[in-house]
Design a protein around this nucleic acid. Sequence first.
RNA 1: GGGAAAUUAGCUCAGUUGGUUCAGAGCACUACCUCGACAAGGUAGGGGUCACAGGUUCGAGCCCUGUAUUUCCCA
Length: 891
Amino acid sequence: MTEISKTYNPREVEDKWYSYWMEKKFFHSVPDEREPYTIIIPPPNVTGVLHMGHMLNNTIQDVLIRRARMLGKNACWVPGTDHASIATEAKVVAMLKEKGIKKSDLSRDDFLKYAWEWKEKYGGIILEQLKKLGCSCDWDRTRFTMEDSMSEAVIDVFIDLHKKGYIYRGHRMVNWDPAGMTAVSDEEVIYKEINSKLFHVRYKLVNEDNSPLSFGEGQGSEAWITIATTRPETILGDTAICVHPEDERYKHLKEKRAIVPMVKRSVPIIFDEYVDREFGTGALKITPAHDVNDYALGNKHKLDIIDVINPNGTMSESAKFYVGEDRFIARKKIIKALEESGNLVKIEDIKNKVGYSERTDAVIEPKLSRQWFVNMKDISKPALDAIVNGDVKLIPDKFINTYKHWMENVHDWCISRQLWWGQRIPAWYDEKGNTVVAKTHEEALQLYNIQYPTSNIQHLRQDEDVLDTWFSSWLWPISVFDGFKDPNNADIKYYYPTNDLVTAPEILFFWVARMIIAGYEYRGEKPFSNVYLTGIVRDKQGRKMSKSLGNSPDPIELIEKYGADGVRVGMLLCSPAGNDLPFDESYCEQGRNFSNKIWNAFRLVKMWETDEKLKQSDGNKISIEWFNAKFNAELESINNLYFKYRISEALMATYKLIWDDFCAWYLEMIKPEFVDGKSLPIDKATYDATIHFFEKLLKIIHPFMPFISEELWHLIGERKEKECIMMADWNTIQKYDSKIIRDFEFIQEVISKLREIRKNKNIPKTVRFQVSTKFQENENCTKQYEHHIYKLCEVEKITYNSSEKYSHNFTIGQWGFSITNFSSEKIQDDKENLLKELDYNKGFLLSVQKKLANERFVQNAKPEILEIEKKKQADAEAKIKAIEEQLASLK
RNA sequence: GGGAAAUUAGCUCAGUUGGUUCAGAGCACUACCUCGACAAGGUAGGGGUCACAGGUUCGAGCCCUGUAUUUCCCA
């Protein structure tokens, strides 16, 4: 026999099998008569490298797809990446900077050339990493959200939704970076808590007609209202003062106005519950052009909007004061001016959060700008219904509430981004800002000339902005099958709707909800049936793993260290659906140890030599019957766990079936004895059955551990070219006798107890036990499993129907056992244990009896519950009897 | 500020419509074991007032109310 390594070495097998699977086109799917099972990958960013979240997410997808394939379905897992406009553009800008090129010096086309170059060079890294993990994606179907046909779909959808009236252009507050002269996304704003000053400033009150207002009696008792602000420079853009309608301090100010200091503008006092009465003075100045909340209030109360800050962060013409000066210098000067005019009431120290640009570290300026929006209210209705009525299931369903709440209060979706990398918005403008939406300049001109026949214009300017990346990804389930270009093609008809989507709860709204919306809008059908929401991978301190924190281990290094199978198992062991998982490498270690355990079980079996002439022992026969029953029972439960998407529990059940039932019990039961430095041969029937079991077990672990299962599958038997485990059939459940399982559980208890006694009494294994029982051979199953007891805990003989007195007694259930062949000085221990057990059981009996004596219980409890209680009573009585007998038989 | 969820062993989680004296699993931990598959192992063992306080019920980890803590989403 050739030497097999003592430990499993994943490096030697993983690449080998992955290439083999690829060569044989096992991952590739084409429509046929079988039932399809489809997963579309949540497309990772092209900028991305594999992180722990991807590992978890894609492991789950691979488990699902591999099992579906084994179940005989036509399994298709479509991979791909998205173009991630913000992240990619940032990467490209950074790369150019290193080369000494500024984005602003490049034309749009030149910039895009660099961007595509970058994408070609780095955009495929993450997909290659998925291969290392073992992902069985149909790589022939790899898609990218910015490839031509997908971009075309995006543009067509924009035009279509615009036609249908869902898309409009409106105002919105964006995070403006005055240093970078660009809008940045919410994700790129870093909020820092800083020490600030809260300035209390008084505004003079006047009547509605701006006539002076006085509440006091004497002279000079003009009326004032004091507001508090951290940004006095925006006072110049104030267009209202807001107070709480129930604030007693300000109730008398209905229909009054205030005069903004310096600019002397008269603004209304408005009343809104938005105001926090406790903060500052309870009076809030409203600057709709420079604060998100103020903007919302401004809309609500129809206030004027005065933009007092230029894009570069200096004061604008409309500010009237300090025009052209930086906002922070203006702030200082205004404070001084207010102080001098006596309008600065006081200065308070406070801590507040201020947003900074991730890229330039400049203080973010909320700025009003024109953007494109999707009106979500009507279009999203089917997507709300789909989840509520269960057409699309969320796993776990605790997310339904959150989803519902969001969808019922859905906000319009801002889809324009001030970037170049992405699909350019197909909107065209003339000098006056008249707008048409069309696919090309030519079409735009035609349309324009119809809509504005008098203008007679030759050229229109296209919108500079691109579309939000989500505006591509929400079409993903349809566009990967070319469902826009060719709505009746064979692929989309066969694969759509897809089956399971595996993703993170944090993008439930950004992505999942929108895909459902698009699905109903463009296919009249849901895009997938189940959404499995994974947890967020965190570090030990509970922080989300992220690139910026640098707290994520390198997944590829983990794979090298523990093997892909080990890492996959490690990720899954601790990740029930929807729960966060604080990652720890020790999980991967456990996965690796499991690989090794399976490997060594194989080594053991492979070592045995068979003897054709050897007759199968009863012990072996019964072992096989038992494991067969146990296997099928567990298979049933594993199938059920898969059905409920309890993947980590299915894995744990598999783990225990292999480690405990197969390795620790079954193999030990049938293991041939070792005599004179040599293993005795094993009978052929037992050997064959064992190999058969092993193959079935390998099938169960294949979805979790594709590599080791494939390797052993080929080492354990002769296979033809395409006979791979990944293409094998999933096991079917065979009839089994569950009594065998129950009987053997009893035997396991007996064996454990005997081992425990041996250990506690320090009896060496060379001393074999003589065991006696009071019961007859046919009273329970002990006799049938005698051989196992002999073998697994060094028992020499069991005598039934014995009435001797012995020193070591114990009971399992209602059956008493005694060890007879040695005397111990520690009888006291046994006595104590038996007394303890007796005590416990008597207490238990008492509680049951009490319950049964309780009239209200007997009246109210269901009949089956009553039956159970009566059985408990009988069992407890039998147990007590057995223990008492054992006590009596002690020497 | 509004909404949602969670809290069970040192850690990560199970615990089905309330019904065995009532708490399970894996890892970690402790003790013993180099016994020819595996020390990445074997055997056995010790860990929990089910966040807290009330309530409903014959009976509560499970249902209700409140409190505390944590997390997430939205603003």
